[in-house]
Deep mutational scan, measured.
Amino acid sequence: MKVIFLKDVKGKGKKGEIKNVADGYARNFLFKQGLAIEATPANLKELE
């Protein structure tokens, strides 16, 4: 799953980066902790 990092995550990505991560990792950790959001077309447009 592609995500947009909202904060730096050690060993995974830095704020503003778009990366592929495991679905479970994204849903169970990154999204719940507010560290990333899903890289949907709408979210990508907001990032620009």
Rank of each mutant, 00 (worst) to 15 (best):
L44V: 11
I4K: 04
K19I: 10
F29D: 06
Y25T: 06
A42W: 07
I37N: 02
E46P: 07
K12N: 07
K2V: 14
E46I: 12
K32Y: 06
L30E: 01
K32A: 13
L44Q: 05
K14S: 10
K7M: 11
F31M: 07
V9K: 01
G34A: 07
I4L: 11
K10D: 12
N28G: 09
D8F: 06
D23F: 14
K12R: 10
A26L: 13
E46F: 14
I18T: 05
A26Y: 13
F31G: 01
A39Q: 02
Q33V: 10
I4F: 08
V3A: 02
A42G: 11
G16T: 02
E17T: 06
F29P: 02
K45A: 14
K32T: 12
N28S: 10
G24M: 11
K19S: 06
D23K: 13
G13K: 01
E38H: 07
A26S: 05
E48K: 10
L30V: 01
F29Y: 14
L44N: 05
A36D: 01
G34R: 07
D23N: 11
L35Y: 08
K12V: 15
F5T: 01
N43Y: 09
K45P: 06
K19W: 08
A26H: 04
L35F: 10
K12E: 14
F5I: 01
A26P: 02
R27L: 14
F5R: 00
K45D: 09
G24Y: 14
A26E: 12
G11F: 07
Q33D: 07
L30D: 01
K32E: 11
K19Q: 07
D23S: 13
E38M: 10
D23P: 15
I37P: 00
V3W: 01
A22V: 07
G34F: 08
A39W: 12
G24S: 15
A26N: 03
V21Y: 05
P41Q: 11
P41F: 11
G13R: 00
V9A: 03
V3Q: 00
V9G: 01
E17V: 03
D8W: 07
A42Q: 13
V3K: 00
N28A: 10
L6A: 02
G11Q: 04
A42P: 08
K10I: 13
R27D: 04
E38W: 07
F31K: 03
K14E: 06
V9Q: 02
Q33L: 15
